[in-house]
Design a protein around this nucleic acid. Structure first.
Lengths: 163, 163
DNA sequence: CGTCAAAGGTTGAGGGTGTCAATTGTTTAT
DNA sequence: ATAAACAATTGACACCCTCAACCTTTGACG
């Protein structure tokens, strides 16, 4: 509602590059504009992610961890980089998940320093339900015309590829 | 790079509804698909929001509060609903911002129970820089073809309208 | 072989974020 | 006038997060 009107006043500090011919100004504006809109929508809907996680008695971060623990085992340090947080943080995180028997630490044979994380039976089951729930599109997408959905999907696929 | 390959394995637990005629299956699939892609991209990018906020010596939540404190004054309870968190949480939040002289509490004249929040001079200045920084589109959008940007913008505007 | 630097994980201190239950002060309805 | 409802705060408690210090293991190099 308000992050929109002031979009213009903010772009005072325009990037100094972007000078090739004569199309660019619009270019920068377009990306910024689309991004602001996207951010607005997404932010509105990320707000209830905690509630979503709570449906499974998980904190948001715990849900995120389960999400990353797809199939194979993962070293704790790898998880730390995935979460882009300090390794010491992961210790407590995993402690709590292990206490709930959703995850197991098992030390690697090749390198006895590292501990690999694997989902338990219960953990995998919970993760399945969680992922299914997370895949449910939010209202603003459910009520989108079909052609917009197709277009959106295409754009996103392209973006992911060049990422 | 891995939330994609397993997209298929997850939809094993397909929603039991979705049985009416013969068109819906694709419908559900489209929204879910687009949503999953969007979520993937957004999540990747949201990961460094803490770092972005840290550029301004703010925590992510503090940045969010500043974002909401646009122009007018805001009651603390209103802010609580915007943040969708408990009112008691806002107290501490505002305490810390006020300690840094970014925000002021002033009690309302009409209703002496409520305290209105306003940005200080410094707060408004910081918010300006923050908003400009947040408007900078992430790499995956900066490298998008122009027509995709236009399409994306249009889709998002439509979505926001019907929201 | 012995030493040493680097890496994986843990611990402890300290602070921000979040909830719930109880409290205080104010408003509003009855 | 009294009671119910509301805004904000406080205290207890848990989680998330970082940093610095530490221990063990590994790998390299003399």
């Amino acid at each position: 509602m308000n992050g929109l009107g002031e979009g213009h006043s903010e772009q005072a500090g325009r990037p100094p590059e972007a000078r090739t011919q004569g199309v660019e100004e619009a270019e920068v504006g377009l990306a910024q504009q689309a991004w602001t809109l996207l951010f607005e929508l997404l932010h509105t809907h990320m707000r209830n992610f905690p509630a979503l996680a709570a449906e499974f008695d998980l904190s948001p971060v715990q849900a995120h961890v389960l999400r990353q623990l797809g199939e194979g085992a993962l070293a704790m340090s790898t998880l730390a980089t995935y979460l882009s947080c300090d390794a010491s943080n992961v210790t407590g995180l995993v402690d709590r998940l292990e206490a709930r028997k959703l995850v197991e630490r098992r030390s690697s044979e090749q390198d006895r320093r590292v501990k690999m994380l694997v989902l338990t039976e219960a953990g995998a089951e919970l993760r399945g339900r969680l992922m299914a729930r997370m895949a449910r599109p939010p209202p603003f997408m459910a009520s989108m015309p079909e052609e917009d959905l197709v277009a959106l999907g295409d754009i996103m696929r392209r973006a992911l590829k060049t990422q």
